[in-house]
Amino acid sequence: MRMRGRVRTGLKGWGGVGAMAVVCGLVLAFALLLPVARSHGDGSTGTGGPGVTRADQVADDGPCRNPAIKAHPEEQTLSPSSADGATIDKIKARQGEKRKLIVGVDQNSYRWGYRNPNGGPTADLEGFDIDLVHRIAQDILGDPNAVQFKAIPTNQRIPAIQGGRVDMIVRTMTINCTRLGQVAFSAPYFKTGQQVLAPKSSGITGYNGTLAKQRICTAEGSTANTKLVDAKKAKELVSSAIISPPVPNQLDCLVRLQLGEVDAVVTDGALAASQAAQDPTVELKGSPFTTEYYGVAMRSDADDLVRRVNQILVDYRKDTTDGWQASYDRWLSATLNESSAKSEPPPPKYLRKN
């Protein structure tokens, strides 16, 4: 009965929308609103079957064998360039209504990539990641709205790129060495770290012994899931902590927390802060226990597109009128911190040579 009471009172945030149906419906109902293909395994509808490819979670090999790359994967990207190449030429060659940048995004991460339920009949996608997508489309195609958005669940991000279903993923995607063996990344555009989210009334205080005997939710294919599994094997995580079966999308963890099916969520602090803004009965517990960077993910052989996105990011950071800082102020200052200092990525290094 205690949990039911918390569920009823816990959904008063998120733009004044106070019904459980809004959050629970995001994963299913919002998927119907995007012009996406519904073929098996596409991932754009958020409905992967039992044969979902777990490309995010292959064994650490390839780039991870290099200690320098493993320590700083965010530095393994190509130098900026505004030149077109084979990949960009193909994008520009699309005709008519198909002349759009095809981008995999999230559609249910509050203030990152989501449909505003108060946004009227069109309910366009909004958020920090969405602003960046529009800037990339403006630079490459001359039109910020020349974008076909595809909703890609967490566990389908890499398969969507490798299968050619999207040109890129802009979806709070952490750069790590395992993924560098599967896709190419831009320079970092955001700094975050893994953090614990739990009910305010919980005895959990962070990533520590208070997680003993607690059920922890993560998303499949996420760095949070990989971190917890590895930490459990290395005995860095309290042995009695229970890592629940991962869910396809990160928002599913918040719903499971509200339903009392898990006791805590581990995810990027930047996402956790947005989830806490949706539900005032939960909060971040403790400090981030990793340092991670978000990047734009593309095909490994799309060198010209990687270089172009890196040039766009350079210009985006310099734009004091409608660039990175303005987007942070618009979407994230209320849920993270008025100052963006802790979220700003480091000066980029372009150490990838080919």
Score class of each variant (00 low, 15 high):
340 S>Q: 10
251 L>W: 04
286 G>Y: 02
104 G>V: 07
121 P>G: 06
16 G>H: 09
326 A>E: 05
176 N>P: 04
125 L>A: 03
217 C>Q: 10
25 G>Y: 03
215 R>Q: 12
321 T>V: 15
32 L>H: 02
46 G>W: 06
103 V>Q: 02
131 D>K: 08
88 I>T: 08
22 V>E: 15
105 V>E: 02
255 V>G: 06
156 Q>N: 11
263 D>V: 02
198 A>V: 05
56 D>N: 14
186 S>R: 06
332 L>I: 04
274 S>W: 03
354 N>Q: 12
348 P>N: 07
8 R>K: 12
34 L>N: 02
253 C>N: 12
300 S>Q: 12
15 G>E: 10
319 D>L: 08
115 R>K: 08
102 I>T: 14
204 I>G: 02
203 G>V: 05
213 K>F: 09
269 G>Q: 12
187 A>N: 09
9 T>S: 15
306 V>Q: 15
82 S>M: 12
226 T>F: 11
61 D>I: 09
100 K>E: 10
309 V>W: 00
195 Q>E: 10
9 T>P: 00
6 R>A: 09
320 T>K: 15
218 T>G: 03
279 D>K: 02
297 A>T: 01
64 C>M: 08
239 S>Q: 13
27 V>L: 08
111 R>Y: 12
211 L>M: 08
319 D>F: 06
193 G>E: 01
285 K>G: 03
313 L>K: 03
277 A>W: 05
8 R>D: 10
75 E>G: 07
353 K>M: 09
335 T>H: 09
298 M>I: 12
38 R>C: 06
208 N>L: 07
256 R>L: 15
43 G>P: 02
70 K>P: 00
187 A>D: 07
55 A>M: 15
342 K>S: 15
210 T>Q: 06
97 E>S: 15
295 G>A: 01
307 R>L: 01
281 T>M: 06
304 D>E: 01
179 R>D: 06
158 I>W: 01
53 T>E: 14
156 Q>I: 00
242 I>N: 03
27 V>T: 10
279 D>F: 09
167 D>S: 05
22 V>L: 12
195 Q>T: 10
282 V>A: 06
259 L>W: 07
100 K>L: 09
105 V>L: 08
1 M>P: 11
340 S>W: 09
247 V>L: 13
166 V>R: 01
117 P>T: 07
243 I>P: 08
295 G>Q: 01
192 T>E: 03
230 D>M: 08
197 L>S: 03
